[in-house]
């Protein structure tokens, strides 16, 4: 593949660490949800760690607008971990005092604005915020379901008209709840946006494929990347329907091994992230 080996090795490891961190954190969310310590609906990023881990390693936006499945972005960009845990536990010490829950996680210190839960409405919000101050660069993330909301294309087209510096990302897990994309539509958002002159890419969520596009696009925003990914658990909650078709984290690990990383080193990172997450969650759960 022409885009392979475009990352410096320390960047590759950094992405891997972030992916492991998200996976470990989300496993703890699942555990606390299954034990009913978390009582609100949760939208987990397990299986979809790669996109945020990769983007955050390369692109430093001033504003971040994600939607309901936003834990991975919050964690990748360095959102306050104590506050997301307390938010999910419904506590006053949560990032929104327990009012926003899993979709609403917000940390203004990293420029991340909470989502109210209506898919795709973060897109016009991101466009308006960037129009308000176009010295700032914005990251706006949504899913393949939101891509079909009327106002999403319109808002992106407005960003194209006004040349607003926004990187749009669609985490395309091919599912709206459980309805596959091909049942819902016969078009790709990348084609529609290409037609109005926006730089686009439609690629798997492999960090080594995403990386060169991010590097190229951040200098010609607005731009859009549709990242095909695989959600491992249900749309909401912690249920699972069979074995996931792919596991990007596992595949990425294999690639790192192929280019010379030691298995022990990678396993040590995985173990360390699991332990960190477990210790952190235990600390919060004990503080009832």
């Amino acid at each position: 593949m022409e885009y392979y080996n475009t990352q410096a090795n320390d960047t590759k490891l950094e992405i891997f660490k972030k992916m492991c961190h998200i996976r470990a954190f989300e496993k703890q969310v699942k555990k606390s949800y299954d034990t009913h310590d978390i009582k609100c609906p949760v939208y987990l990023s397990i299986g979809q760690e790669a996109t945020s881990a990769t983007i955050s390693t390369i692109f430093k936006p001033d504003l971040i607008f994600t939607q309901h499945r936003g834990h991975a972005y919050y964690l990748s960009f360095g959102g306050n971990k104590d506050k997301i845990i307390d938010e999910l536990l419904g506590r006053d010490s949560g990032c929104n005092k327990g009012k926003g829950g899993s979709p609403g996680i917000q940390d203004l210190n990293i420029g991340m604005i909470g989502h109210h839960g209506l898919i795709g409405e973060n897109v016009p919000l991101a466009v308006g915020a960037t129009l308000g101050d176009s010295t700032k660069k914005t990251l706006c993330v949504f899913g393949d379901g939101a891509a079909e909301e009327d106002y999403v294309f319109t808002a992106m087209a407005f960003a194209q008209t006004h040349k607003l510096p926004i990187l749009f990302i669609c985490e395309d897990n091919d599912l709206s709840i459980l309805t596959k994309k091909q049942v819902r539509r016969n078009w790709e958002l990348t084609d529609a946006l290409k037609a109005i002159g926006m730089p686009t890419a439609n690629i798997p969520d492999d960090p080594e494929l995403i990386t060169p596009y991010i590097k190229e696009f951040i200098n010609k925003l607005p731009a859009f990347i549709n990242c095909k990914t695989c959600r491992h658990l249900w749309h909401v909650g912690t249920g699972q329907d069979g074995t996931p078709q792919t596991d990007r984290l596992e595949e990425y690990k294999q690639k790192l091994l192929e280019i010379g990383y030691e298995l022990e080193q990678l396993q040590e990172i995985e173990k360390q992230k699991l332990t960190e997450a477990e210790v952190l969650w235990r600390k919060h759960l004990q503080r009832q």
Partner: peptide, 18 residues
């Protein structure tokens, strides 16, 4: 605004955030 009633309101809200 283009003739976009739904996105237009979101753009207004985004402007207010800033």
């Amino acid at each position: 605004l283009p003739m976009t009633d739904i996105a237009g309101a979101g753009i207004a809200a985004g402007l207010a955030i800033t």
